[in-house]
Amino acid sequence: MDPTALYESFKALEDPGFWQEAYMKFYNAWFYEDRWVTYFQGLLTTVEVTVIALILGVILGVVVATIRTAHDQQRLGRRNPVLGVVNLFCKIYVTVIRGTPMMVQLMIMGFVIFKSSRNFTMVGALSLGINSGAYVAEIIRGGLMSLDPGQSEAGRSLGLGYLDTMRFIVIPQAFKAILPSLGNEFITLLKDTSLISVIAGKEIVYFAKSIVTKTYEAMYPYVITAIMYLILVLIFSWLQGKLERRLRQSDRR
């Protein structure tokens, strides 16, 4: 049956029952004036922001983690002063980002630093990427430090340089070790995109809130939003699981 016709038939009822009432509310939150299109429009922005922030976060995280690890692994008495200064900046960055709420960072970025930008989605993605970078950096650093130092010693003792040792020996193993925490961080990032609605970033929550203000009914728009996030996270977890299984190939006995 056509959803609109069904809605009209329920609406004509003198005293609609619980399920009829529920359907009418759902109709208002989903079908009425093609509102479902807006959810998907928001979903698209959510995915877009997540992807941009993820790429930015990984790049930042890798750079910061590399600098900090290289600094910490220098031979005693042969410290590079330039690396020392850059390391200090990295440390400040990580401290500030991890020490302040995402929401506050977003408002500072949206209303203070990029106060003349109208590309709210990009400002949001940038803020989230910068935020994520700090966490990714710490995850990577933890992964690099948790790896048995014997691994890089073995690489170096064979005459491989620092970069080759990192590239072929340390990073592939560290990556496998940190994948679960990295996955968690990305899921957090995906969900944190909902915050950009405070700087008028038009993602799912923004549209859900707008629909609530038109229907005066909060349940369906928010539950629909929750389900959409859940589906995104499930897809992401599935991909992560696949990757983990592939990387575990060398563990089989």
Partner: peptide, 23 residues
């Protein structure tokens, strides 16, 4: 239309956006 309108959590934020030139 939605493309020409932005919704903020309160009036003060909307006015701040105007001062910033964001709207």
């Amino acid at each position: 239309g939605e493309d020409h309108v932005l919704a903020y959590d309160n009036g003060a934020t909307a006015v701040q956006a105007l001062v910033n030139g964001q709207v």
